[in-house]
């Protein structure tokens, strides 16, 4: 395998609040190869969004990256100054947010906004910039792109706005795109169109993606590998099919089992007892232990990531549902 485009090692982002230190991201590590899509799955408060923000250096006070490394094509992003980082953002690494209404400026036309994004990193003539913008809009599935450049965001539907946001993220052919629940606010039929297109775009352009989502089904149809987050850390990671078919961490297994599709209609669903812990008062040891039916005294210590083949899990008592998975 070639060198990863993005390599994250033991990333820790903490928020220093009056109530105490919130360890939103607490030791996250993963690698991403060119053109690879990784799904980052977790429930609210698991730290998946803060992880995404940390990759682009977008964490605001009272939060900051306290330790760890984010290497993008060999450059250590956490060591860059603000202005150096700004020259990378949108150029080498860009982000798509959940809410396309909040992302776009309502006072400017789509064309003006795309022009600004181009000018931030490149000197192009007005004509060249327009044709680049139109080309990108066409690529993300917006018909009659040239005319649409003169339209304002309110003239677009939610799905179309998100396509514009994606087109802006793609303007400079970044090596990595971080997408934070970009289809959550959209209808299923529009979501399917966009997922499909993103999959093709990643393959064609070689752009790697971190796709953040709470929806296992969405990422399973998109990503080739998954990372499951719980209480600020990745508790399990591996190739999508392997991880879903044969989860090792009890939390992953519980998440999959609790989906309505996993039970016969009308029968009770498998539920994970309790709620996600507050990051302010995490239990000592494995944070999932209080909700886990496999927990023992051993779980009072914090488990390290156990690596096996191309997957890993953080658990002393991993689930082994199926005896052996045929390769």
């Amino acid at each position: 395998m070639s060198d990863p485009v993005l390599s994250v090692k033991d990333l820790k982002t903490h928020f220093f609040t009056r109530a105490g230190v919130v360890k939103a991201v607490d030791g996250v590590s993963f690698d991403l190869a060119e053109g690879e899509i990784m799904g980052l799955v977790g429930e609210s408060g698991s730290g998946k969004t803060v992880t995404g923000f940390s990759l682009l250096g977008l964490v605001d006070a009272p939060g900051r990256i306290v330790s760890g490394s984010v290497r993008l094509k060999g450059t250590e992003l956490t060591a860059l100054t603000d202005s150096e980082l700004r020259s990378r953002r949108g150029h080498d690494i860009s982000m798509i947010f959940q809410d396309p209404i909040a992302t776009l400026n309502p006072m400017l036309t789509i064309g003006q906004q795309m022009r600004m994004a181009i000018d931030a990193h490149e000197r192009l003539s007005a004509r060249a910039a327009e044709s680049r913008a139109a080309e990108l809009l066409t690529q993300v599935g917006i018909p009659s792109a040239k005319e649409r450049l003169r339209a304002y965001p309110h003239e677009f539907s939610g799905g179309m706005r998100q396509r514009v946001a994606i087109a802006i993220a793609l303007l400079h052919r970044p090596a990595v795109i971080v997408a934070d629940e970009p289809t959550t606010a959209l209808d299923v039929s529009i979501q399917a169109q966009i997922l499909f297109q993103m999959r093709d775009l990643a393959r064609e352009t070689g752009t790697a993606m971190v796709w953040i989502s709470h929806d296992l089904a969405v990422v399973s149809s998109l990503a080739s590998k998954l990372a499951v987050m719980y209480a600020g850390r990745i508790v399990e990671q591996g190739p999508t099919a392997t991880l879903l078919r044969d989860p090792r961490h009890p939390y992953t297994a519980g998440l999959i089992a609790s989906l309505p599709a996993m039970a016969a209609p009308g029968t009770p669903l498998t539920q994970i007892p309790g709620t996600t812990p507050s990051l302010l008062s995490l239990p000592a040891g494995c944070p999932f232990a209080p909700r886990c039916d496999r927990a023992t005294d051993l779980c009072k210590a914090d488990p390290d990531m156990t690596h096996q083949d191309n997957r890993g899990w953080r658990c002393f008592h991993p689930v082994t549902r199926t005896a052996e998975v045929p390769a």
Partner: peptide
């Protein structure tokens, strides 16, 4: 067009999309 959790596929699942909005 609903993404489904498919456990027994090694390939990425193909799903149908509805054209237009």
């Amino acid at each position: 067009s609903v993404p489904k959790l498919v456990l027994d596929a090694d390939e990425l699942v193909h799903f149908e999309t509805i054209d237009g909005e």
